[in-house]
Write a protein that binds this DNA or RNA. Structure first.
Length: 151
DNA sequence: GCCAACGTTGGC
DNA sequence: GCCAACGTTGGC
């Protein structure tokens, strides 16, 4: 089982939206590195830290779990969708997504500025200079440590 | 709103 | 294949 951090802007889709929906397709990824993660490495049962970016409270807000892996991203085939990509076909899809289910919303957001204060988390991909990927792998020890912090 | 750090595009 | 111009991300 792997662990991941998924970024989202809460104004477009928040942990509360996921809690309400119970599950959702994580679509709209248009970055090749992240595409490769979603196509090849994100597996059913993997645990996900949900992260709110560009908001009042920047940080990890809750947990989710992968329930379907490596799905061709349907928004790439939808002309009406802002993520439509004419180069992606159903026979040979360019973009992939996964389905995730809500697991937990933390009582308090683990703020980015708090994450930065823990030496155990210094190596997180999230904190690497220039790292802008909206899906990043998280090590098991980082994951366990974060869960301990939000207890 | 600013801007650093990328990623993508397209002319050559 | 190079690289300038442009677009995007995301913290501050």
């Amino acid at each position: 089982m792997k662990h991941w951090l998924f970024k989202t802007e809460p104004t477009s889709y928040s942990i509360s939206d996921l809690q309400r929906d119970k599950k959702t397709l994580w679509t709209g990824i248009r970055n090749y590195q992240v595409r490769n993660f979603l196509r090849d490495e994100v597996k059913v049962g993997d645990r996900i830290l949900i992260y709110h970016s560009s908001s009042d409270e920047i940080g990890v807000v809750g947990l989710a779990e992968v329930i379907k892996e490596s799905i061709p991203d349907p928004t790439a085939f939808d002309k009406a969708d802002s993520h439509f990509d004419p180069k992606s076909s159903k026979e040979k899809p360019t973009w992939f997504c996964c389905e995730i289910k809500f697991v937990k919303k933390f009582k308090n957001t683990l703020l980015l500025k708090e994450i930065k204060q823990h030496q155990e988390l210094f190596e997180m991909k999230l904190l690497q200079k220039g790292s802008r990927l909206s899906v990043t792998p998280v090590t098991k020890s980082e994951y366990v440590y974060i869960l301990k912090l939000v207890d």
